[in-house]
Design a protein around this nucleic acid. Structure first.
Lengths: 212, 212
DNA sequence: GTTTAATTTAAACGAGTGTTTAAATTATTT
DNA sequence: AAATAATTTAAACACTCGTTTAAATTAAAC
């Protein structure tokens, strides 16, 4: 039933790299299949269409990350004291970095895919994630809201999307930014260092008192 | 020399709307010219290529916004007291909203174009902006740095790019987010309301003390 | 009014896209 | 070993894309 080196996996591995680098619509199936060293038609044979390939690429990461993130929320919730916002955000660092064990550069690729998907797919990815991983997201939103009870839920909605933009845009251009930072300031950061830099920024923004 | 209702302007007007809505590569010249009710070939005749059309669309806004933003920086600088970070960010609101006088929905379109451009164009737009409007950007960076002297310049570099991500991603999906906010919370925000929401978020993140 | 330049137009070009087809090949089952 | 199913392959299909061409039209200059 399965072939030699699993054509399906070869396609997914090649596709996720190219999608993360150059976006979905800028990546042709011919480029993917030539990098994966498989036949062009095998994408449609195994996945049906390009759109379903994109979903499969994302799902392979989300299926690992989302339950892991949920577990972290549960651990925090079972603690005796209310967690701080920074603790909640920091608890996602391990699930994110664990994606590097899954595949080389897994963390960066995942975050870049997320960013590309949110912007390119005209709301389609947003629907896909909320319908397939809604309960995991709710656990996160509840934890964050509990840590900042002075923020009304409508305001929190906006701030969490500001935060999504912060992390997703930063990661989509993390490589370019790291090059500039190295040349300009002699800094040499890896992906974890950047994540640890962005957490205080996001935590401060989410919890800042609402003006009127 | 000039034609009836200025074909060039009709193209720019139609193009900027479509580019902002669906991105650059997802918008075909045929769609632009049919909306603008001009001939397909007139794009190449007046602008040379699609890439140059994109630059012309962006430049039409940047040429207005950047000097106006610089003026605001100068005004703040000539004041007797050091401005707060929120004042500096807020001083950009008027230049942004003035784009609505230029064209209907000008503010939204400009910010969406900026977001699309930074993400789609693989660093090409970043280069275009820094080389063409670098001095205006420097005035802004200097003002922000002076208002938060406890942040080292390398850290400030990262935080300003976090901020770019926040604003740019938010605006690229502002329409979708406004629809959700209206359905979920009964909120009906215009672009100014969203900008005023994001400023405290960004200001808090930029100036939060560095951990160690 | 005639000539010259600028612009608009319809049509085609060449290249690239995702997808489908049917035959060839490989793997599995009986 | 034979029969059946799963997979791979090369080729073609139908379509869209940005760009170019050369003729038709409109505007400007003399």
């Amino acid at each position: 039933m399965a072939s030699r080196s699993d054509t399906k996996t070869r396609i997914l591995d090649a596709a996720e790299k190219l999608f993360a680098e150059r976006g979905f619509s800028e990546t042709s199936l011919r480029l993917i299949t030539s990098k994966a060293e498989v036949n062009l038609a095998s994408v449609n044979y195994h996945f049906g269409s390009k759109k379903e390939l994109i979903r499969a690429v994302l799902a392979r990461y989300l299926d690992v990350f989302m339950p892991a993130a949920s577990n972290q929320m549960n651990h925090l919730h079972s603690a005796p004291v209310q967690s701080t916002l920074e603790e909640i955000l920091s608890s996602l660092v391990d699930p994110l970095l664990d994606l590097n064990a899954l595949r080389a550069e897994g963390t960066t690729i995942f975050l870049q895919l997320l960013g590309r998907g949110y912007i390119e797919s005209q709301g389609h990815l947003r629907w896909f994630i909320t319908t397939h991983y809604g309960q995991h997201l709710n656990a996160f939103v509840k934890a964050v809201s509990a840590s900042a009870p002075h923020i009304p839920s409508a305001e929190m909605f906006w701030r969490l999307h500001f935060t999504l933009g912060t992390i997703v845009f930063t990661m989509a251009s993390a490589d370019a930014l790291n090059d500039i930072a190295a040349a300009e300031f002699g800094e040499h950061n890896d992906i974890e260092a950047v994540i640890r830099k962005v957490i205080p920024y996001m935590a401060a923004g989410i919890s800042v008192p609402v003006e009127n």
